[in-house]
Measured scan of single mutants.
Amino acid sequence: MASDGVVVEIGKVTGSVGTTVEIPVYFRGVPSKGIANCDFVFRYDPNVLEIIGIDPGDIIVDPNPTKSFDTAIYPDRKIIVFLFAEDSGTGAYAITKDGVFAKIRATVKSSAPGYITFDEVGGFADNDLVEQKVSFIDGGVNVGNATPTKGATPTNTATPTK
């Protein structure tokens, strides 16, 4: 695992066909100046998982989280898009600690492993708008004895992609 920078880890949970599971997305290594904004994309298989919603985690402190935390689910493109932009203008609602960034709610549709993997990152910046190093650890849903650990090695991303 990367020793510096922010680590975004997609949790690994267990479920069975027809059940709804909650998959946490963790941030670790949050910089001392916090995270003022970030955007990134995960990939998944809508034939295996139906993403039914995404909720902000406990490290989102904006009293009205829909102003700073936004997501979009595109089953036709097989992606989930995340956007966080601190909304106070003063840094008061920045992410300042490690913990759960988001909770992905999904219904298991198939007995195949439900991988959720890193696809791309736009950027991560602290309260001074300084770009942060970030790496990703894939996860998803274990169905029966299947284990979604494909790509469990962190993917280092030093520069934003478009």
Results as ranks from 00 to 15, higher is better:
residue 7 V to H: 09
residue 12 K to P: 06
residue 12 K to R: 08
residue 14 T to S: 08
residue 15 G to V: 08
residue 17 V to W: 03
residue 17 V to C: 05
residue 19 T to K: 13
residue 20 T to H: 06
residue 21 V to G: 05
residue 21 V to Y: 05
residue 23 I to L: 11
residue 23 I to K: 07
residue 24 P to C: 06
residue 25 V to G: 04
residue 31 P to F: 05
residue 31 P to D: 07
residue 32 S to D: 10
residue 33 K to R: 07
residue 34 G to K: 05
residue 34 G to V: 08
residue 37 N to D: 02
residue 38 C to D: 07
residue 38 C to G: 14
residue 40 F to M: 03
residue 41 V to D: 01
residue 43 R to F: 05
residue 43 R to E: 15
residue 45 D to I: 13
residue 46 P to K: 11
residue 46 P to V: 06
residue 47 N to Q: 04
residue 54 I to K: 00
residue 55 D to L: 05
residue 56 P to S: 11
residue 58 D to I: 12
residue 59 I to P: 07
residue 60 I to K: 15
residue 61 V to I: 08
residue 61 V to Q: 12
residue 63 P to E: 15
residue 65 P to W: 15
residue 65 P to K: 04
residue 66 T to S: 07
residue 67 K to M: 14
residue 67 K to N: 13
residue 68 S to T: 07
residue 69 F to Q: 02
residue 71 T to A: 02
residue 72 A to V: 01
residue 74 Y to V: 00
residue 74 Y to A: 00
residue 76 D to G: 01
residue 76 D to L: 02
residue 77 R to V: 04
residue 78 K to C: 04
residue 81 V to Y: 01
residue 82 F to S: 03
residue 83 L to P: 01
residue 85 A to F: 15
residue 86 E to Q: 01
residue 87 D to H: 15
residue 93 Y to D: 09
residue 93 Y to C: 12
residue 96 T to H: 11
residue 98 D to K: 15
residue 99 G to M: 05
residue 100 V to P: 06
residue 100 V to K: 13
residue 102 A to Q: 03
residue 102 A to M: 13
residue 104 I to R: 01
residue 105 R to N: 13
residue 105 R to W: 05
residue 106 A to N: 05
residue 107 T to V: 12
residue 108 V to P: 09
residue 110 S to Q: 09
residue 111 S to Y: 03
residue 112 A to N: 05
residue 112 A to G: 04
residue 113 P to R: 14
residue 115 Y to R: 09
residue 119 D to N: 05
residue 119 D to L: 05
residue 120 E to H: 01
residue 128 D to S: 08
residue 130 V to A: 07
residue 131 E to W: 01
residue 132 Q to C: 08
residue 132 Q to S: 05
residue 136 F to K: 04
residue 136 F to A: 13
residue 137 I to R: 12
residue 137 I to Q: 13
residue 140 G to F: 10
residue 143 V to Q: 14
residue 143 V to L: 12
residue 143 V to C: 07
residue 146 A to C: 09
residue 148 P to Y: 03
residue 150 K to R: 09
residue 154 P to Q: 11
residue 158 A to K: 07
residue 159 T to W: 14
residue 160 P to V: 12
